[in-house]
């Protein structure tokens, strides 16, 4: 199966129903995308498929075959995406395990909504759980990322 991840083409030997998450983590070797629930309940596995946020734990690899996959590793070459800069500025992370998914959901939101409201953010990121409870900072950082995107 051919897969384009972060701009690089990969040939992977995966059964078509194998979730994209495990193809990325165990076959391509990109471990930034996390396993949290396996049933699209927590959002830790969020990646972009042609720019749209998807839960890779329930997305069969076959569904990604002709699409461009972006993972946290490919969001920016050096952590300089506005969402990543905002996350650093507001000291968002704690344990950090959910943050790849949070950041990917946030990046997809501000790509289509230049000035999200609190309600927009709560709705777009309601599928991303954080047990450390960094939610307040996440909300503030999405606003900040939207500002940084305009600059």
């Amino acid at each position: 199966m051919k897969l384009t991840v972060n701009g690089t083409a990969h040939e992977v030997d995966a059964p078509p129903d194998m979730p994209l998450l495990w193809v990325l983590r165990d076959l391509v070797g990109l471990t930034g995308t996390k396993f949290g629930c396996g049933m699209a309940q927590c959002g830790a596995c969020t990646v972009h498929l042609d720019g749209t946020a998807m839960r890779s734990c329930v997305t069969p690899a076959a569904a990604a075959a002709d699409k461009s996959v972006t993972t946290i590793e490919g969001l920016s070459p050096d952590g300089s995406h506005p969402v990543q800069r905002a996350w650093a500025e507001l000291d968002v992370v704690q344990c950090g395990y959910c943050q790849s998914g949070q950041i990917m959901s946030a990046a997809a939101l501000i790509a289509t909504n230049a000035k999200p409201t609190d309600a927009d953010i709560d709705s777009a990121l309601s599928g991303n759980l954080c047990r450390c409870g960094t939610y307040l900072r996440i909300r503030a950082a999405v606003h900040r990322a939207a500002e940084l995107s305009k600059a």
């Binding site: 946290i72 590793e73 950090g96």
Partner: peptide, 10 residues
């Protein structure tokens, strides 16, 4: 630990 936790490197 922020740099590695916002880039997937952690």
């Amino acid at each position: 630990d922020t740099p590695e936790k916002i880039t997937g490197r952690a």
